[in-house]
Design a protein around this nucleic acid. Structure first.
Lengths: 325, 325
DNA sequence: CTGAAAGCGCTTACAG
DNA sequence: CTGAAAGCGCTTACAG
């Protein structure tokens, strides 16, 4: 089923079929002919070949969003949701790929030839260079330098450090001076975890608190032992990597017979639904997902149009105060 | 940068370049020439045009997985993860699309021309027909008939009903006779929710329990009022749509000063990490994700190879007993 | 063992 | 207002 079939069926040339079906501006085709062509296309169930179109035009209508390896969560979901909507208005489709390694990535963009690749996971510099050489717009974060210097350009690390700082500042305002950071053991989230830890340390220093301690806390078992150890070390407040980790800390406090927030204050990140129904309800850091989603979409659009990306929104996170801290 | 450039650089024809770079079987090219071609390709950073290749071959290397609209969760994540791995061994890429409506779907597969489309969300029959007409393999669930007849072919409804039944059977075995179902209000999960409700009713009937009651429970606020109403109606056990809903029921029980499981037993679904750290730890229904992932991948492979799909695994869910029921 | 040529289906200058 | 023709980059019978 090709445009030639439609042309034959409608009694016109492929040229005219293409003009009409693409609404090519600047060509005048009689209303009757247009109607005839559309009817023929519909009757035959004609769908143009994306491959041929892409080959001819030199670009596809696809945008690939590359995610970090699992797990992702509701914030990324919302970002992609919005991106999908915004790009749909330009006739572009967002396809999500779950990233494994670099080899995979190169094969991927070669197999898709997308208009743009949006990275929610950081890309290696070599990957970025290769994609750009192939004419693909690359949006999103570069890998940070190995020396701990934050990656430039996207504000990602600044934003993540801000979250860690916000947690500590909230705890400090309540009078806590010995703070623990409950970090995630998931290696895929390392970059986030490290940035937040850095932010927490900076905030402790800036606020004159003791150097914070850091421990890995699993989200699938009560953190009883860790909580007991913290207690013994004089820790009175915990900044958790996310709400799930915070819930495990809450369970650990129950196990260690500690009152929350009396004996131990706990603050999470994400404002997940479960944070509202825990015992006690969880104080947490929320991110204005809408603003971040707007920003990401704007970045992609800017890249597609070849203009300067908008500035990263400044420290957009805020504390949702409930009962745990 | 085309294969012609590589040919010129290596001093051979495009034919030979194609043979060597694709490892076409049955052609003999001298090792020296092969080496020269590979070196030239590497030096020039040559990547074949996916569009041209797809056009020529008549099929791309892409498989699109269509998800239901948000949210998805860890089970689906694991399914896709495994599918990605398995298909990678055949040189195929899995790209995920988050489905909105039918219009969107048609545009999508036209823009991608994938080898197969895997539906984790149900497809409308017209969509399935159109894709098949375009030579795309369609794997996954059809929309169930409007009259409540389960969709045939994929075992989906049978499996979901089994989950609802399993919850009720566990509660009945503990002596409960008045059971409530806490369902989700999320319209995107309606199909799951309805199937599980049907399974719960069947199990009540089969077990000689009273007809169950059903209420919608949000996962982001304590279900205090609903729990109080159930209590007044003599309900002693709740089968929740998932663990998040179960957590909200737990919070409702706290709010209504009810002991769990003494006054009210609660059972969830998913065995999420949070189920292990709640107060009390949550009894829940787990699904052997690995088996389901195997099955989905096998289904896709079968469709690609044009052979009969393997049978759907039978009632694979099981109860994880903790303290809440 | 290697190359010239056809053709996948489309879009778009160009000619009429 | 409409059509014949070129060409996007690749693969693969076919000829040598």
């Amino acid at each position: 089923m090709t445009s030639a079939d439609v042309a034959r069926e409608a009694g016109v040339s492929r040229t005219t079929v293409s003009y009409v079906l693409n609404d090519t501006p600047g060509v005048s085709v009689s209303a009757a002919t247009r109607e005839r062509i559309r009817a023929a296309a519909a009757r035959l169930g004609y769908a143009p070949s994306a491959a041929a179109r892409t080959l001819r035009r030199g670009r596809s209508d696809l945008v690939v969003a590359v995610l970090p390896d699992w797990p992702t969560g509701p914030v990324i979901d919302a970002l992609l949701d919005h991106l999908t909507d915004v790009l749909a208005t330009r006739g572009l489709f967002v396809l999500v790929h779950h990233h494994r390694d670099s080899r995979d990535l190169a094969d991927l963009w070669r197999a898709v030839t997308p208009r743009a690749v949006v990275g929610l996971a950081p890309f290696a510099p070599a990957d970025v260079a290769a994609m750009q050489r192939a004419g693909i717009q690359v949006v999103g974060s570069r890998e940070p330098a190995g020396d701990g210097t934050p990656a430039d350009g996207d504000g990602f690390d600044r934003s993540q450090r801000g979250i860690g700082a916000l947690q500590v500042e909230h705890l400090a305002a309540a009078g806590h001076t010995r703070v623990a950071v409950a970090t995630t053991g998931d290696p895929r989230l390392r970059r986030f975890a490290d940035a937040r830890w850095a932010g927490a340390r900076e905030a402790c220093r800036a606020g004159g608190l003791a150097e914070p301690v850091r421990a890995t806390v699993r989200d699938d078992e009560p953190a009883t032992d860790v909580v007991a150890a913290w207690r013994a070390a004089g820790v009175t407040a915990v900044a958790a990597y996310n709400d799930e980790v915070a819930l495990a800390v809450l369970a650990g406090a129950r196990g260690a017979r500690l009152a929350v927030p009396g004996d131990l204050a706990v603050i999470g990140v994400d404002d997940a639904p479960a944070a509202r129904v825990s015992a006690p309800p969880l104080t947490t850091v929320a991110q204005p997902v809408d603003a971040q989603a707007e920003h990401l979409a704007a970045e992609v659009i800017a890249a597609l149009d070849g203009v300067e990306p908008p500035p990263f929104p400044r420290d957009p996170a805020y504390v949702v105060v409930r009962d745990s801290a």
